[in-house]
Amino acid sequence: MNRWEEKPLLKLEHLTMRFGGLVAVNDLSFSAGEGDITALIGPNGAGKTTVFNCITGFYKPTEGRIALRHGEAKVWDELDAATARPDRRMVRAGAGLYLLERMPDFEVSAHAKVARTFQNIRLFSGMTVLENLLVAQHNALMTASGFTVLGLLGLPAYRKAEKASIEKAKYWLDRIDLMDRADDPAGDLPYGAQRRLEIARAMCTEPVLLCLDEPAAGLNPRESADLNALLLGIREKDGTSILLIEHDMSVVMEISDHVVVLDYGTKISDGKPDFVRNDPKVIAAYLGVSDEEVEAVEAEVLS
């Protein structure tokens, strides 16, 4: 049995998102496994970013349920009971269920621990690289600073927390190889470094699920390889599961454990990379060709 069926971390069920007459996501169901790298692929305009926006609370889905689990897998049995209640989350010792479609965007990150990056990089460009990583630790530092009051008084507890936050920022600067540029404004970094910084910033919120919207877009082959290593490292060392949108097939096929394919908002394929890559429906949709031509281009895709 596949891990996403055995130990799902995130479950989307019958997700539909309409913009006026346009159905951007149509009755989509899939799950992402704990410890998996799950790729969401599809042609331009397929609705991938819209799915991300629904998961992270930026859009409220027209229909459907998006649930995330913390802790032991048994808690899934209580999903229907949790849904029946009006609450946004159900937390008990050692486990929790979060109904993401009910939560506003900042709570998805703060409580459900889902972090994301954006298709068009959204760094705080006028702040330094270090500051970007400190802002990401806002909620932890806010508590430590006694909602600013204790911090203003300069109590040692806050100073310790601040030091710890800088240590954590340094740890991530080291991981993304930007230690030398810590004090430079984020807007001054080259494109590839900005992508890595955005990932590190998301990781500073200590997420259980990291959603990356086209992280390899615009990277050269070497940067792309570095990115693969970084993502695999995040899964190994930090135990964070990853959900990523990607057009670059080399990245998808190399690092993902599970691939979901969308076309016009509908799921057309779902499985291991090898299965998806050989699915004629995917090849047809992805390349926008008729079935007769599929054979001809198949060879090209496989190479």
């Binding site: 930026f58 990150s109 760094l123 802002v135 806002h138």
Partner: peptide, 11 residues
């Protein structure tokens, strides 16, 4: 600098 990014960080 960027309100959307702030919200994605749980602020």
């Amino acid at each position: 600098e960027d309100e959307i990014a702030c919200r994605s960080l749980g602020i």
